[in-house]
């Protein structure tokens, strides 16, 4: 299965902004964070297809995962 992964703000430094992951059907957000060496506490805001999820969430084929560090503004 294929998943699009987007990293934002400080998380993209030294990694990438948009990438594609291929893996087994049981892939979770935690698996992807681990493979990217992103500590979970830095992955403060996680979206799958624009909906808030947490690191336990499972990914499906064609999903878009977006990960942000703690950010704010207004």
């Amino acid at each position: 299965m294929k998943v699009t992964v987007k990293l934002f703000a400080s998380l993209s430094r030294g990694r990438f902004a948009v990438g594609v992951f291929e893996g087994e059907a049981t892939l979770t957000v935690r698996d992807i964070l681990a493979s990217l060496k992103i500590p979970e506490e830095e992955a403060s805001i996680i979206f799958i297809n624009g909906r808030h999820e947490d690191a336990d969430a499972a990914l499906g084929d064609g999903d878009t995962l977006a990960v942000f560090p703690p950010v704010g503004g207004g």
């Binding site: 703000a9 560090p69 950010v71 704010g72 503004g73 207004g74």
Partner: peptide
């Protein structure tokens, strides 16, 4: 985050 990117760090997250 605010010193590094300012308030406009929100564009990507609100868009996502």
């Amino acid at each position: 985050a605010l010193p590094a990117y300012g308030t406009n760090v929100l564009t990507n997250i609100i868009n996502e």
